[in-house]
Design a binder for these strands. Structure first.
Lengths: 244, 244
DNA sequence: CCAAAAGTGTTTCCTTTACACCCATGC
DNA sequence: GCATGGGTGTAAAGGAAACACTTTTGG
């Protein structure tokens, strides 16, 4: 029933099939209450001029996470501590790159308030594209990047429910309503301010209040308590997305 | 801020660093109300005689899922339709294999009632090891397989909550109490039979009743309705693990 | 004063939990 | 009859949703 495993996992390094291993990054940020993802316009075939996810080779002596972090820094110039980066999944269809066999380890990341790359000379090449543009089908990405991005969006939406990653869209210090706005933006929904406040605060050690208030806006309003992220990475009981 | 991406994703195939890409499989099954995982005893260094997860190379023209399925068939001889197989994550630390740079795409799988490989001449090489043995720390696996297995166990436990994969531990036709036993085994807990029945049945289209009853055991009992898996892969609202 | 936003209280409803109880079978 | 396991009923407790209400600011 079970074959002799003598030859399983034991191999001659010379006979392994040649693969290229890359990382691709799905970087989310929120601009103007709109969830956006960093895309790059390709400058060479295949898929010349098409939008693609940023990414690159894994170097011979670095971990996968390190490669992802390095690419992220290279693409955004940001080295902030306060970022979120996690493996998403690996995509390795034999024909996903017409030139050669490439297996890519996709990651997804969150950075708060990424400055829009438009305006500089890079404007033609990199852009923060609204996720709604991709979900509506108006934009077709290179390679299998539509699939990767779709998976990343679902992962992000789902992970807001039971983890505190939403705080990564905010600056280090934030108010509950800023955090609620993140949820509303990513889930594309409206949430009751009172109930949201209670649910997020009852999750132990996830938010730490500071002895500090925000400044109200132009038209007034009660100053809000300022919080920082706590030690707990999970929210229990989870927040749940409204259905449909 | 964002560097020119002309050179991103555009490369000369000759200059890519050489990687070996493998798949490793965490195969779960239940024997005697104990959750077990298929391990193989290595026959060559490194980690000679240590237990390891089954796995092997991804071939030049196959998908990652196909490689996993192929390895699974080769290891178990089973080609059943009724199995579950899913990507778990990718592990690629530069030193995870002392011989060369190997990136492995780990998968996890469920097969019902896998016959124990003990008894044949393979007895020395492959075994269904209770997960409790590994969790207690009594068994140290080769490479980073302890990490992979730990992740797989958590994934399995978590995924029982909101999906119908538990049915993959059962034969094609099963009773609710057989399904409950799966949950109790994987979660290592006791569940209220009445409440379990209601919760699992209120998930629409996840279980389809047949016009059929089980035979009671030796000591009697009411015959149970027989079910098959329905079209829905998700359970909502989810079943939740009892805490602690 | 009013408008606006933060935050709390309260009522209603729904789900979960615990466990009692009935049903169908073997012996 | 009794024991065993399948399945349903139900009352109490707990949590979620909707929304009224209070607080603190700007104008």
């Amino acid at each position: 029933m079970l074959e002799n495993p003598e030859n399983t996992g034991d191999y001659d390094p010379k006979e392994f099939p040649p693969f290229a291993v890359t990382v691709d990054i799905v970087l989310f940020t929120i601009v103007n209450k709109s969830l956006r993802v960093l895309l790059i316009q390709r400058g060479a075939p295949p898929f010349r001029d098409a939008w693609a996810l940023p990414g690159g080779f894994v170097l011979p002596d670095e971990t996968l996470d390190h490669a992802a972090e390095r690419e992220l820094s290279e693409e955004t110039g940001i080295r902030k501590k306060q970022k979120f980066l996690e493996q998403l999944g690996t995509y390795g269809h034999p024909e996903r790159d017409p030139r050669m066999r490439v297996v890519t380890v996709a990651h997804w990341a969150i950075i708060p308030n990424l400055p829009e790359p438009t305006g500089g000379s890079d404007a033609k090449y990199a852009e923060l594209v609204p996720v709604s543009e991709i979900e509506s089908g108006r934009i077709r990405l290179a390679f299998d990047h539509n699939t990767i991005l779709k998976d990343a969006i679902e992962r992000a939406r789902s992970k807001l429910e039971y983890s505190t990653i939403a705080t990564n869209f905010c600056e280090k210090e934030f108010s509950i309503s800023e955090l609620r706005e993140v949820y509303e933006t990513v889930w594309n929904t409206k949430l009751d301010p009172g109930n949201f406040q209670r649910k997020i605060l009852q999750a132990k050690d996830s938010l730490i209040p500071l002895n500090k208030r925000t400044k109200p806006g132009e038209k007034g309003g009660k100053p809000a308590t300022v919080y920082v992220t706590g030690t707990s990475k999970s929210i229990s009981p989870p927040l749940t997305r409204p259905k449909t």
